[in-house]
């Protein structure tokens, strides 16, 4: 699971009102290096909940992201590199996502979160 994906995930168990953002429990993580695409980064930023992303990145050891993104920053190579790394290269391979309200745990196995609910949770 990339932090890009974490930014979009919520707990949808019946009765939960505030299942976002999910807490991350990391058992193993990897850095999978990939080629940076500035146009992608400049576009996706409007879809992100930036404070959530920034906090998740810091938790996974990717410090130094600014509190807010400006158009000027989106032109700066060193910012884009940090952004790219935290958003796409950091992968939680094994671990869990935990609902902030109910404590419901969703496992991450082989990099893939399992968000399925039991019948009594729908």
């Amino acid at each position: 699971m990339k932090l890009l994906t974490h930014n979009m995930l919520k707990c949808n168990v019946k009765g939960v009102n505030n299942g976002y953002p999910l807490k991350i429990e990391v058992t193993t993580k990897e850095i999978r290096e990939t080629e940076m695409n500035p146009a992608f980064l400049q576009g996706i930023v409007e879809k992100l909940e930036w404070p959530v992303f920034r906090a998740a990145a810091a938790q996974l050891g990717e410090e130094g992201l600014p509190e807010a993104v400006t158009p000027e920053l989106l032109e700066q190579e060193d910012f884009l590199k940090k952004f790219h790394r935290a958003l796409l290269e950091v992968v939680v391979v094994e671990g869990a996502l935990i609902c902030p309200e109910s404590g419901r745990k969703f496992t991450i196995t082989n990099g893939i979160p399992n968000m399925l609910l039991n019948e009594d949770e729908v």
Partner: peptide, 30 residues
């Protein structure tokens, strides 16, 4: 399927993709 999809994307150099196990979109805040 989620696992195969993840491998298909990675193998073809698609780095902006991620796979997850979910019933429709129920786990996403989109």
């Amino acid at each position: 399927a989620a696992s195969v999809a993840s491998r298909t994307a990675a193998h073809n150099g698609v780095i902006t993709a991620d796979a997850l196990v979910s019933d429709l979109d129920s786990a996403l805040a989109l």
